[in-house]
Nucleic acid binder design. Structure first.
Lengths: 341, 341
DNA sequence: TTGTAGGCGTTATCAG
DNA sequence: CTGATAACGCCTACAA
């Protein structure tokens, strides 16, 4: 081995170091380098050590694009969610992404904005990246996409919703049941008059309908059922309450489609001099920090988005590794009575 | 060539239609199919039509992994952010992701949780995917990583911070200036006693220090400077205020490191019977929805996270396309006086 | 345990 | 405008 003068910078540009360079330096075949990286137990200790030394010296970074093409495993997951601006989705995305990263998977993010056509397009677009799995929000409602996904045999984890017919695995709960449970909760407290303030998204609609049906089932009165134009926000809760305030009775129980809406309603109610909970009882949904940390704390439905994300990651990994898993996983929800009911 | 029996049923390919199938059906070379997809203007109309028909008939989805390997452009961007649980980061991520998607780029998400070592590790990890660009939060502080990025010649867009020395392009503002501006604002209102409640993250620290320095520069009194343990949350704002409430004077001006902290402080102050803004003036940071939509609305520093995300996307695209862009882009911030000051 | 051969599906390049 | 050829960098499969 001759000592070369350090001609150009000793280390070649990192991005251009490839597996053959490492192999040459370590005096092994490229395949051995690959094994050191991917299946270390199939390489003898001394060889592995030499290879690792070469890797360090050259600052080698494997090219996962090339590896993915060859192995047909991209080690990437595509996630299609409506938005990450709401805790409803940012919480599970956070834990999902973290857990997948711990296992060597990266997550591609695609935002669909509650729009069916956009969701379809996003799913098609991400499939071109050949992800090893798909994380979706709610059940896929478009038949051609469903068929495409089923035919692809790709692990598909759907969260938040309990569809009639899951594409693959589904983690969530029945949103209509949530609405019904809230109605029952109010009824147990002696309420006879009800209202709802609901964002315009499919799952919020299910909760609203479940609530309304249960109120009707009890033979009680739904005074107002306001569907907001925008996705859930505090401002929507406030304007929504302003719009229904004239319809409310002496003692009304209000179900908001999220804690943001509920907080908005609470804020506006107090400005109108409406006593909470005596004149207006309020229950939100989601158990976001605001409902817990504001004053008075808002009653809500607890659902653990972070846990759903983690479960989704575990299911995803299990399926990638070939495990057969149940097609439907129910996540519990729980009404948390606080000061507004 | 002998026909082998199918060994084991390994996983059937996601979408087994490949470019050669389309080419065969359309009676053209694979390269022509590629051109129809990537440079349509270099293909005659009739040929393109035949190819498109074949694509539709077969439901062909190009394999971007293979394309990326060949073209050395992955059409993916890696984003390394502390968290998406805070609007501070979810807002720019949302617009960045959307804008990049509109231009054919997908975004890989990596969460670093405010931890320097984790950020370094995440950056290294995503580089193995050969992204076409990197979106980072704040300037890279780790010298080896900096060097790695510079050597890689990869477009790197750093947002939120104005570093001493940007790696590549930097979009943000000077957080110390924000703190100073808030101090000046309070001083103009006649305040003489101050306090701050600040999350434990680098940029919040800069704002806090800028605030403290300016207070000192005016020769005025900083009664309390509480650094919270956790990242910014409402609960932290509440507990923080509880901890400093004994230190506050007759009329104090409080700077919170985010609107969540400010809202928490406001909530707690009212519970303590402290008049806002007469006894305690509060200014937050970030102009999150809560500061605008709560009551009383909280004075804050407006910074447009969504716009920063969009600018970041434009800068990214420009650099990917070879444009020379300024290395430092100042984004304005603006104090919004509302009811708490 | 290690190596060799070949190909993963696409695109750059150059020729026609 | 279209095609043939040769990579892109790595890993599967098989051989030694």
């Amino acid at each position: 081995m001759t000592t070369r003068p350090p001609a150009r910078p000793t280390r070649p540009p990192l991005v251009s170091v490839k597996i053959t360079d490492v192999a040459a330096l370590a005096g092994v075949a490229p395949m051995t380098v690959s094994r050191v990286l991917n299946t270390p137990d199939r390489v003898s200790a001394p060889t592995a050590a030499r290879v690792r030394a070469a890797i360090d010296e050259l600052g080698y970074m494997p090219n996962l694009i090339a590896g993915g093409l060859s192995s047909r495993r991209s080690r990437m997951i595509a996630a299609v969610v409506p938005t990450i601006a709401s805790p409803m989705f940012s919480a599970p995305m956070q834990t999902f992404t973290d857990t997948m990263a711990e296992n060597g998977y990266h997550v591609m993010l695609a935002l669909s904005g509650y729009d069916q056509a956009s969701e379809d397009a996003q799913i098609r677009a991400v499939l071109a990246r050949r992800p090893d799995g798909l994380l979706l929000t709610g059940a896929v409602r478009s038949p051609p996409i469903r068929e495409l996904l089923r035919a692809s045999n790709l692990p598909v984890v759907e969260i938040w919703d309990t569809a009639e017919d899951p594409t693959d695995v589904l983690i969530g709960f029945d949103h209509a049941e949530v609405g019904a449970a809230v109605a029952d909760f109010f009824v147990r407290q002696g309420h006879t008059h009800f209202a709802s303030l609901s964002a315009r998204d499919p799952r919020a609609a299910l909760r609203r309908e479940g609530f309304a049906k249960r109120v009707a089932h009890h033979g009680l009165t739904l005074l107002a059922e306001k569907v907001l134009d925008a996705p859930s926000s505090i401002e929507d809760g406030r304007s929504g309450l302003r719009q229904i305030v004239g319809l409310l009775g002496q003692r009304t129980a209000l179900f908001g489609s999220s804690d943001l809406v509920a907080f908005g309603a609470l804020t506006e109610a107090r400005l109108h001099g409406i006593m909470v909970p005596d004149q207006l009882a309020i229950c939100g949904f989601g158990d976001f920090e605001i409902s817990r940390a504001c004053h008075p704390p808002i009653s809500t439905v607890h659902v653990d988005g972070a846990e759903i994300g983690e479960m989704a990651a575990r299911e995803m990994l299990a399926r990638i590794n070939g495990a057969v898993t149940p097609a439907r996983i129910a996540v519990p929800f729980q009404i948390l009575p606080r000061a507004t009911t």
